[in-house]
Design a binder for these strands. Sequence first.
DNA 1: TCAATGCAAGTGTGATCACAAATCAAATAA
DNA 2: TTATTTGATTTGTGATCACACTTGCATTGA
Lengths: 244, 244
Amino acid sequence: MQKAAADKSDPIAAQLAPVGRETVQDRVYLELRRALIGGLFEPSQVLTIRGLADALMTSTMPVREALGRLITEKALEALPNRSVRVPPITLERMDDLLRARILIEGEAIALAATRMTPRQIATIESMLGEWDEMRALKHKKDVDREVTLNQAFHFEIYRACGSAVLIPMIESLWLQSGPCIRVAIYAFSDAGEVDTAHYHRTIVKAIAAQDAKGARDALVADISRPFTFLRSKLESEAEKGQSA
Amino acid sequence: MQKAAADKSDPIAAQLAPVGRETVQDRVYLELRRALIGGLFEPSQVLTIRGLADALMTSTMPVREALGRLITEKALEALPNRSVRVPPITLERMDDLLRARILIEGEAIALAATRMTPRQIATIESMLGEWDEMRALKHKKDVDREVTLNQAFHFEIYRACGSAVLIPMIESLWLQSGPCIRVAIYAFSDAGEVDTAHYHRTIVKAIAAQDAKGARDALVADISRPFTFLRSKLESEAEKGQSA
DNA sequence: TCAATGCAAGTGTGATCACAAATCAAATAA
DNA sequence: TTATTTGATTTGTGATCACACTTGCATTGA
């Protein structure tokens, strides 16, 4: 019955890696994904296969497959030239993304609000403290940590909604709005992280009370904030460009 | 100014294909996509790269990239053996898919109901007639045409919702529920197409009246039907398997 | 007869190569 | 000086190869 672990190769090493070993392609894909959600790429930035292959210390093969996957998720865009780039930001696309996120993430959090266990609620409650820690040492903004913490908080909730269909869609939406979000957070200058903590606190309170509607409303307020901020920024830029 | 068409190669051929020529990879991807939405693959069926490459008269390269893209869309499943298969049907997954489709396609049709032009409404109205045509020559069911017509009707509506974010998500959902749907349609035996026409008629009526809520309700009834039918079938199979 | 071992065919993955198209830069002509 | 063209470089795409792993079957042993 222990056939899976008992191979002709070293049984100890086999136990350390019991499941299928990770492929280079997946590593590249996850790396690019993380970079996109974190907003490490600029909107409209073009990516080349060989460039990424060199940067990731691999050949072109895993990169091109990863890029293809990201293009189908609309996380990247295939130009008619066959080059690929990070999709540019437009007002219409932003509103579109926000509406979809409100719809789907709102549904997910409403489901989660009625299903989260006390243990899961304790987990997201403990995450609130990390915002205070971050505000305590108020040196220059650690945008990476903000993004990571925000992501961990939200997906800890979404994972509890119990839908294997909704969660990948939410991941796709984050992937698509990642570059915009980063731009918004930078534009926020400071005063960003304290607000985030406040909204997250409201969300946790609603979930702890099993208040699905309250949780959905709090979430909408939370994810709308960077979008509305970015929207006003884009609008001012647009009219400036028009006058020029 | 005619630099684009004036190449060193044949200018006539260049004009016949003015935009980027299609890649083999895209052809394979669209082919597999069509097959999946149409339910040409059985649930749990495993697909091999070389097998598909031979069937599609190409090398393994475009196939593996297309498979990778379909895996990220959850249209296919990567087994720990590294082989890929069509995801099997489970009750939980079906309910999950149906809920997501109601949520997203419902939103899309509600948006479309307030935005469709008379011309677009006339288009989907004309599609109703094709169901009558099909019922008129009532030889053996033409499942392929049913699926195609149903798809064309729905996406003609969704395209009018004006959301470049929602439409790909809906396509992904159809891709994931395609194999289930085909099983359900086959199980329907006959009496399937007449009902479809009836539900579509209700949808068109609501849209013509710009009744967003009515359109959403009619759509929910339409897409729920095959799922509830398949659900009862799976449940009876499950208890039969339990007794055996 | 049945289980285990070993061999062979099949399969996915990554690297490399060949080719066509696009891009960029320098050189030439007006 | 400016616009056009020519050539070299870069880039994406598809094919092929090499390797590792899995799977299936036949052989061998008890």
